[in-house]
């Protein structure tokens, strides 16, 4: 995060020195895009926080834990696709899940789906790619994540 701030500041500074008008045009363009997207983003984050409240950690351990078999996979896939958890929270959570007896392959499915798909981010994605392509990309990623989990299961 700090790196990004510094990097942006340097880019902005250099750009301002080289050409002030061009820089403002760029910043204005970026800001315009941001503000157009903002309501959709806030709505998405609201949905995510509600879903996250409805699914507490203990339930996850219960459904994905030892001997959960196909239920574990389904839970991992379902929760992973709905949730939108930043990595700095998701990885510690996975650490807890592993310690509570969740299989590595289930974790692989969970983490891959979590990162590659987002059914709650669909409204945002659709603003760029359109609904049809966004849904397709998410579905293909979902299948891919299950495949990745399956292969991981062979190795771990």
């Amino acid at each position: 995060m700090k790196l990004l701030i510094i990097f942006t500041a340097i880019c902005l500074f250099v750009s301002l020195i080289v050409n002030r008008q061009k820089t403002w045009a760029g910043v204005k363009k970026g800001a315009l895009m941001f503000f157009r997207l903002l309501p959709t983003l806030v709505l998405m984050l609201a949905l995510v926080s509600i879903v996250l409240y409805l699914i507490p950690e203990e339930k996850l351990v219960e459904y994905m834990g030892e001997g959960s078999g196909i239920t574990g996979w389904m839970t991992a896939a379902l929760f992973g696709s709905v949730a939108l958890i930043p990595g700095f929270i998701a990885y510690p959570l996975c650490g807890i899940l592993i310690k509570s007896g969740v299989a590595y392959s289930v974790i692989a499915v969970f983490i891959t789906i979590l990162m590659m798909t987002g059914f709650l981010t669909l409204p945002v994605e659709a603003r760029f790619f359109g609904w049809r392509v966004s849904i397709l990309r998410n579905l293909v990623s979902l299948v891919a994540a299950l495949l990745i989990g399956l292969i991981m299961g062979f190795f771990l």
Partner: peptide, 15 residues
Amino acid sequence: FLPLMFILIGLFDVW
């Protein structure tokens, strides 16, 4: 995070 990202995108666009 996002405002920074959009500033970079805007600069990327013009440069």
